[in-house]
Design a protein around this nucleic acid. Structure first.
Length: 903
DNA sequence: TCCCTATTCATGA
DNA sequence: TGGAATCATGAATAGGGA
């Protein structure tokens, strides 16, 4: 067959590649070419390139797949085949019964669209081989160029080898979009719900149109060639139009002869499907001076194949009769069917299947060798079945942006690019009003190897800062993985998916409820939360989700409430990677995170995910020790840093130390072990906590070493502790403290699941570390600056405020103070209820308590309750009160659930 | 053990 | 010298929970 023919002319490796990079003459206008000559040129031009090597690799992988498939085929018994055949027959009968021939589906495809537009606008190009694109890549080519083997998706430099006279015109998408809009206007008259596939392609269901058409008088089916009023091309003279249109594809198999007669002024179209489609194409041509091809059939699959049949400037119809459909399919090469690409084609060819008739005959075998969805699809194809319902208004599932560039090795450049991509993506998302939860980073290295890395946040986001907060961590992780070698990239992309539905869009902020959900403590939320808090803290104008929402406070949306299993969903990537590292480095483990000299720390997400120290932590610790001297007393946490704000070049030495914040009393504890910390929280929960003095118990030895190694380090930590008492520090920059809750056992908690509560250096300023039990007003000084800033900027200032929880008027006008007070009130209320329903039972290490402790750690969530209440006035609306009460139920539920887990 | 979900990669338009 | 961008989907895989 084709492959065999190609392979015979070349070396084995070249033959291997032919199905991938050699000429694909599947396209219209590519018939009867000197394929061997063209392939030789393509191979010679490609050979030795990184691209070629990668294609070779991929081809070998496909070959392995085929080998495995053939082995499986060899193992197939007659009995299995018999059984499979029975199943196939059964399904076939069902499909036959449900075969629908009643719809009239049309697939319209503009001929060589971009090239045709350029030729129309620059008539000198008409007789020349030309393509649209660049030396790097061509989007499409005209039919002159196709004679040389120049096709879409071919690099311009290779096309030039094939056709030295090729004229390459740069793309002008604005122009194509404008033309496309004109064409779509016409489509909509035949099917208002037509489905555009791209700028130059669409499916229409003209069934209803045809019904109406039967009652139309001839005048409604008459179009005048020169009637500028009817057709929107008044700007062109008649002679121009006559000259332009037919010449583009003069050798078209079915160029409408009726149109070329110079004396013909009016065209009357009939009532049949063919006539309606001919009319549509006529109108397209009149309006745009471009030609289109069309396929008419009872379903989409057939219509698509048909539109290619008489390309260019032609149409083909399969009538709605089973027998005709089957006859049409019989000799149709499988590759012509949409969805069958080069790999599937090759795999089927290995089984001796080239056309759809053979496909049908081998269904039993295919059902044993391919997945269910694959062989079901094959069965549909072999029966000439396809979708009869044009899917309308299908929801977008992802949005992405990516860029290819010359080799890029510099990390700072890469971060900068990453940010640019996030910026673009954020703009696109906001344009469509979308917010998504999963950020995927796509990387292609200089060897053309593609990697994707994803991270799912707890909340849907859409701002540059928020997206970048996740993307940069993913990028850092990849950079660190190859360190000290540079990451050599040629493409980077950022994708957003996991869009929330329209309903879910309203509550952008999750309440404390969400954090109290079992399993809802996934660290993604903390990354997210931290990133957002910090981002907004610095950028008060940012329209992040922490900005006051005008929507009503309500329960978390279904999607957001849905408990993440806390497993691979949130952790798989980082955890898996981290665990691998962990195995190599267990002996070096300590709870303490280390120093990050770049402030771009994948550790952030990594630590958030698993709380495992990483290689980077370790190495960074060493590398940054000296730097930390110059930045004494500054705490930072990798996941609370603000990469979204800091430029890659903005290097800061930040030392991350283990600070744990009691979520109940807000006491800061440094260098505590987890058991002690947990005990402390238990005491707090039981109401018997002592004065919130920091607990300072034995830190792991490694940690001590880490802390003491740099001359300044140990003293620094003391400085830091003492500085926490310093009120001036408090004034300097309030900070957010976030505890990452993770279930743990005391035995191995040292490296498995430590609590983390990190402090971040913000703008080089010291974070606040509160040590004493704070009054509400004192405590408020440590609340999120973000909210204060946000509210100040968006709301009134000056008037006295009343706490919506305790209803006490607050003497302060400082929103930060006020916020803090409300935070405390809310926490108190929840905790009191919790205490009431769960009196102390002796075992202070009850897992549920531990989890609750952790769950309560993020005060940012609670703050949103306050934010809203403040905007609405001084008292909580009923819904909010209910909400607070229901928090207790959530805790109960959580408690029970956790207890069950333990069992 | 089975089911569900997230992630990664491949395929195809 | 140089080999795209965007979107959807399926398979394989892995881990958590019931």
């Amino acid at each position: 067959m084709e492959n065999h023919h190609q392979g015979a002319a070349h070396s084995s490796s070249g033959a291997d590649l032919l199905s991938r990079i050699a000429l694909n003459d599947n396209k219209a206008g590519m018939e009867g070419l000197d394929r061997d000559k063209i392939n030789k040129i393509i191979l010679e031009t490609s050979k030795g390139s990184k691209f070629y090597e990668n294609e070779l690799k991929k081809e070998q992988q496909v070959n392995q797949r085929i080998e495995k498939m053939m082995e499986q085929k060899a193992r197939t018994t007659k009995e299995q085949l018999k059984q499979a055949q029975a199943e196939v027959d059964k399904l076939m009968c069902e499909l036959e019964r449900s075969r629908e021939l009643g719809r009239v589906i049309v697939h319209v495809d503009m001929d060589a669209f971009y090239a045709a537009v350029e030729m129309r606008d620059c008539p000198e190009l008409k007789d020349k081989p030309m393509a649209v694109g660049s030396m790097s890549m061509l989007s499409t080519s005209n039919y002159h160029a196709r004679r040389f083997g120049v096709r879409a998706a071919m690099p311009g430099f290779i096309a030039k080898k094939l056709c030295p006279n090729l004229v390459i015109v740069p793309t002008n998408f604005d122009k194509y979009r404008a033309v496309s809009a004109q064409v779509r206007e016409i489509f909509s008259e035949y099917d208002p719900h037509f489905m555009p596939m791209s700028l130059d392609e669409a499916y229409l269901d003209i069934t209803e149109h045809l019904e109406q058409r039967q009652h139309w008088p001839e005048t409604m089916r008459t179009y005048y060639i020169c009637d500028a009023k009817t057709e929107n091309n008044a700007d062109r003279s008649e002679s121009e139009r006559d000259e332009l249109s037919p010449v583009l594809f003069e050798d078209s198999p079915s160029s409408s002869p009726s149109l070329s007669g110079a004396d013909r002024k009016a065209e009357v179209f009939g009532m049949s499907a063919e006539e309606a489609v001919r009319e549509m194409r006529f109108r397209i041509q009149q309006k745009t001076s471009l030609t289109a091809s069309a396929g008419i059939a009872p379903n989409m699959m057939l219509a698509k194949v048909c539109s290619d049949k008489n390309k260019p400037n032609g149409q083909y119809r399969i009538p709605p009769e089973r027998q005709v459909v089957m006859e049409f399919m019989k000799d149709l090469p499988v590759r012509k069917v949409s969805g069958v690409g080069k790999v599937t084609e090759k795999m089927l060819a290995a089984l001796g299947i080239v056309n759809c008739d053979q496909l049908g005959q081998q269904m039993a075998l295919l059902s044993l060798l391919f997945s269910v969805s694959s062989w079901h699809n094959f069965l549909h194809i072999s029966l000439g079945l396809g979708s009869t319902c044009i899917e309308r208004d299908s929801e977008r599932k992802s949005m992405s942006t990516e860029r290819t560039f010359g080799e890029m090795n510099d990390a700072e450049e890469q971060y900068s690019l990453c940010r640019d991509l996030c910026h673009d993506l954020a703009q696109d998302l906001q344009r469509e009003g979308l917010k998504g939860k999963t950020v995927t980073l796509k990387l292609k290295n200089v060897k053309f190897e593609v990697k994707t890395r994803a991270f799912t946040l707890q909340y849907a986001v859409c701002t540059e800062e928020e997206i970048f907060a996740a993307a940069k961590d993913l990028l850092k992780f990849e950079i660190d993985c190859v360190s000290p070698q540079p990451l050599k990239l040629r493409l980077m992309g950022v994708r957003m998916s996991g869009f929330i539905s329209a309903e879910d869009k309203k509550p952008l902020q999750r309440s404390i409820m969400g954090f109290l959900q079992k399993g809802g403590s996934d660290s993604g939320s903390f990354t997210q939360c931290a990133g957002s808090v910090l981002k907004a803290e610095e950028d008060s104008d940012a329209a992040g989700f922490l900005k006051p929402q005008s929507t009503e406070m309500k329960e978390p949306s279904v999607s957001e409430q849905k408990p993440k299993s806390g497993g691979p969903q949130q952790q798989s990537f980082f955890q898996r990677a981290q665990l691998k590292r962990l195995q190599q480095q267990q002996e070096q483990m300590s709870i303490v995170a280390a120093t990050d000299t770049t402030n771009y720390s994948a550790d952030s997400a990594a630590a958030t995910q698993t709380d495992l120290p990483t290689t980077n932590n370790q190495s960074d610790t060493t590398s940054a020790k000296s730097l930390s001297n110059t930045d004494s007393g500054t705490d930072a946490t990798s996941y609370m840093n603000k990469p979204a704000v800091l430029k890659p070049s903005f290097k800061i030495s930040t030392q991350v130390l283990q600070f744990l914040t009691c979520p109940v009393c807000n006491a800061e504890m440094k260098d505590v072990n987890l058991t002690a910390f947990n005990n402390h929280i238990d005491e707090c929960l039981k109401g018997s906590a002592v004065d919130n003095e920091p607990i300072h118990l034995d830190a792991p030895k490694e940690q001590e070493e880490l802390n003491s190694k740099p001359p300044a380090s140990s003293s620094e930590s003391k400085t830091r502790k003492s500085s926490s008492h310093n009120p001036s520090c408090n004034e300097e920059k309030p900070s957010t403290s976030i505890s990452v809750p993770l279930a743990e056992t005391d035995d191995d908690s040292d490296f498995k699941t430590p609590f983390f509560s990190h402090r971040t250096k913000i703008n080089g300023k010291r974070s606040v570390i509160s040590k004493k039990k704070m009054s509400s007003s004192e405590a408020s000084q440590t609340t999120h600056k973000l909210e204060a800033v946000t509210e100040m900027s968006s709301d009134s200032k000056g008037s006295s405020l009343t706490c919506p929880v305790c209803s006490q008027p607050q003497s302060t006008d400082d929103l930060a103070l006020f916020n803090r007070h409300v935070d405390m009130c809310l926490n108190q209320e929840v905790l009191l209820e919790f205490r009431e329903s769960h009196p102390p039972v002796g075992d202070s290490d009850e897992p549920a308590l531990k989890n609750v402790r952790g769950q309560l750690g993020d005060q940012g969530r609670v703050s949103k309750v306050r934010e809203k209440s403040k905007r609405q006035g001084s008292s909580l609306p009923p819904s909010k009160k209910i909400k607070v009460l229901s928090t207790k139920q959530t805790i109960d539920k959580f408690f029970k659930s956790s207890a069950r887990q333990k069992v």
